[in-house]
Write a protein that binds this DNA or RNA. Sequence first.
RNA 1: GGAGAGAUGGCUGAGUGGCUGAAAGCGCACCCCUGCUAAGGGUGUAUAGGUUUACCCCUAUCGAGGGUUCGAAUCCCUCUCUCUCCGCCA
Length: 427
Amino acid sequence: MIDRKAFRTNFETMQQALARRGEALVAEGSAWAKASELDAIQRELKGKSEALQAERNRVSKLIGEKKRQGEDASEELRCMAEVATQSKQLDVQAKAAEDAFIQALLEIPNMPDSSVPDGEDENDNVEIRRWGEPRQDEVPAHWDIGEDLGILDFEAGTKLAGSRFSVLRGAAARLERALMQLMLDMHTDQHGYEEVWVPAIANRKTLTGTGQLPKFEDDLYRLEGEDAFLIPTAEVPVTNLYQDNILELESLPIKHCAYTPCFRREAGSAGRDTRGMIRQHQFDKVELVQLVHPDDALITLETLTSHAAAILETLELPYRVMDLCAGDIGFSAQKTLDLEVWLPSQHCYREISSCSSFGQFQGRRAGIRFRDEHGKPQPVATLNGSGLAIGRTLVAILENGWQSDGSVLIPKALQPYMGGLEAIAKA
RNA sequence: GGAGAGAUGGCUGAGUGGCUGAAAGCGCACCCCUGCUAAGGGUGUAUAGGUUUACCCCUAUCGAGGGUUCGAAUCCCUCUCUCUCCGCCA
């Protein structure tokens, strides 16, 4: 959520920043326009309502005093009956107006940071750097490699659950587990993150805190008969660990990593990546989350991204870093750096990690605050990034490690986690 | 799932209709005494919104929502959560 005061006092600047995401967001009928309209109404009603409540409180106190001293208070009682009724009505209106205002604010995306490049969509993203030597020879798609080795079973996934589900067997299943372990080990032992294990189900408030709700309910799996959802990312439960907390300045930065399964309806991506493991309804991910002082947010984004990149380097997977343009960053993001891994079968880089700073946007929504240098509570800055998406990492390993005899080389760093296995070959 | 008990500030814990945004203790911060070891004394210490240069002030909040009342932490209703016992279960 954007700051309700800044929304008013800084209207022009914020509007311009928001417009960089796309003009429609500030156009007539947008949440932005609605919010500015509701803000005025809300404040006027609230002012009136509070004045009346003040009057009520004052006279009520008087009545109390008179009664205690055995005096007659019938006159006050008579006129207060009227005031009480009015006050109640006004209060209801004022509350409704404020709710509507907050609802509108919740639908307004975060302001892109000034360092975010201009642009409309992924074509305008800016490449920052590359690492590794991408292989240029012809490599089969991972689904062919996997099925050929008998370790990826898409048919079984479909039979059990539907499209966009898959089954891993043998070396692939172990690879999934090995990757999870390697990633968690590196982040805890080398990068200083505390590992947490969290529920894969979250309630509405929690999902509102990180920005998935109210706007993107269609992307989530909702539990029948409950106001709860399967998490689309560990960001949701891990960030919200501190929901409604006021943290001490010294406790920052807070750094967590977590493995969770992730569940996405993929409602808007019909026809995209329908084959293989790139886009699944359920996938595994190790997530990095940091809560930091707002002044440190953008610097931390660099280090957090480097922590995710370190996994790719350890696994010897070529990648590049992309600075997402204003039109392509997510709803809650202030700035996003994507890591894209080389997929030789597609002759291109594909997203494997998305690292974002949210500024104080989530902190404000989720009520995660810290005491600043003056002892005043203010929203913390939050960041997160995949470190990494495990399914996609497995895909990258299959394709980048593929050899013309059909076998797949296991990266050295991963071999201990695979029981010393150096290559996956046909049984 | 059944029965019972409970939910108050950073923590413990008073408070059954007005003088309670909330006693007391602990913790924390600052000051004093002492003197460098233990201890003692004083002051301060919720969050949000509105207003304001700021102070002040106003409003809301005692799990959440609704009701009764001139007035609710306190009475009534609904919900959520926690604890204990029983049942079930990995």
